[in-house]
Amino acid sequence: MDVLFLFRIREHQEEMLKKEFPEIHFLFDRKPDDPALETSEVIVTYGADIDENVLDRAKNLKWIMVASAGVEQMPLGRIRERGIPVTNVRGIHKTPMAETMLAHILAYRKKLGVVYEQQDRSEWNQKIRGTELLDSKALILGPGAIGSEIGRLLQAFGVRTYGCNRSGRQAEHMDEMISFGGLVDTLPEMDTVISVLPSTPETRGLLGHEHFGAMKDSALFLNFGRGDLYEEKVLIEALENGRPAAAVLDVFETEPLPADSPLWKMENVTVSPHVSSHSGRYIERSLDIFMPNLRAYLDGSIDEMENRVDPERGY
């Protein structure tokens, strides 16, 4: 049985897999045009390199393991038609991403950018007025594994957390919950607005002029989910009008962000090049999900595999 990895992992991780699964022929660091694609039962990928041409050639394919949370770049319709199970690594990003978001929030509220700029100028100026997180309110769009973790960290700072999802169903580390329909009414109360929503038919273009216009003129907006949550020109106009006050963006409509994008030059925008999930433990955590799933696959217990993706919903 062939298992094809479309990316590189470390040598000791390769040896670990070979030792744990001696009956499997692993092919590491291959490309989608590798001839082994046609015989492999399992493909391990970051997702973006799986297109309809790859699916047509992968005639023996019976499971796709995506070492990412998002699967929106994959031909989900064709995958559904062929009945190929898809799993992802949902949940492994929560620690690095929540830590990164918290760092950006604290840097903004404590005016650390101003501190760093003054140091560059050798300037001693104590007229820096930061604000506290204590007793503030944060709205988290998409309180899943990542959203709940940033909620937990913010609650430790005395922040009241509001979760927002499709159903309004309760989520961990959220003091209150709303559904998408309650956004406009809730946004005027929020000091921090965070999105970690995936890209789905329900979330694409979810935020419009009325949502940004409803935000406080002191609010910080962070998007660490997907760049199609809104039209970028709508956000730029909102930031120019002062609602929200500032934005930290890790995802964009087009990536890499074009050099001529106005976002690069805006003083109230922090551009993060989609790196919030980066961690030296990324592959390690991915394999922690892949290995039990591979055992379940070999045992014929596909229904028991963790992190199954619904191709119709996109997550």
Rank of each mutant, 00 (worst) to 15 (best):
M16G: 05
W124M: 07
L153D: 09
L55H: 03
A245W: 11
F157V: 09
V248E: 04
K216V: 00
Y108R: 06
V66S: 06
L206D: 11
W63Q: 01
D303Y: 10
K137T: 11
D29T: 04
A67M: 15
S199M: 08
N307G: 03
L153A: 05
G242L: 10
H104K: 06
I150H: 01
Y315E: 03
L298C: 08
A245Y: 12
D120Q: 13
Q73I: 09
Q170G: 01
M101F: 05
R78P: 00
E189Y: 13
S276F: 04
K59D: 03
L153G: 05
I178Y: 06
L187V: 04
F28P: 08
S277N: 12
G280C: 01
G142W: 04
P256C: 04
S195E: 13
L287G: 12
D288S: 12
G151D: 09
R285G: 06
G113W: 09
T186G: 02
I92C: 11
R285Q: 14
E38Y: 02
A36H: 11
R295L: 01
V275C: 14
H278V: 12
R285P: 13
A138H: 15
M177L: 05
V271S: 01
A98G: 12
L207C: 10
T200M: 14
Y315W: 13
G213T: 09
R10P: 00
H12L: 03
V86F: 02
S276A: 15
L187R: 01
R78F: 05
K19S: 15
Y230G: 03
Q119R: 12
E240W: 02
D51P: 05
K18W: 02
D303A: 15
Q73S: 15
L154C: 07
L222V: 14
G227H: 08
M215R: 01
D29P: 00
M97H: 02
K265Y: 14
G205K: 11
V248D: 03
Y297Q: 02
I105Q: 03
K62D: 01
R80S: 10
F252E: 02
Y108L: 04
L263E: 00
M97Q: 05
I194H: 04
I283W: 13
E11L: 13
M177K: 00
N60D: 01
E149I: 00
V115E: 03
L17C: 12
Y116F: 14
R121G: 04
E231D: 15
I150V: 13
P292W: 02
N60E: 13
G77D: 14
G83Q: 09
E52F: 03
D175G: 06
D310W: 02
L76W: 05
L4Q: 00
L235N: 11
V86D: 00
R204V: 14
S276K: 01
V271F: 06
E132W: 12
G91I: 10
L239H: 09
A98F: 03
R285L: 14
G144Q: 08
Y116S: 13
P35A: 09
H274F: 06
E15A: 12
I24H: 00
K110F: 13
A36W: 04
L206P: 10
L27V: 11
D49H: 03
T161M: 07
M266N: 04
T87W: 01
A58Q: 09
G158T: 05
L6I: 06
L220V: 13
N88M: 04
N268L: 09
A98C: 07
K19T: 15
E15K: 12
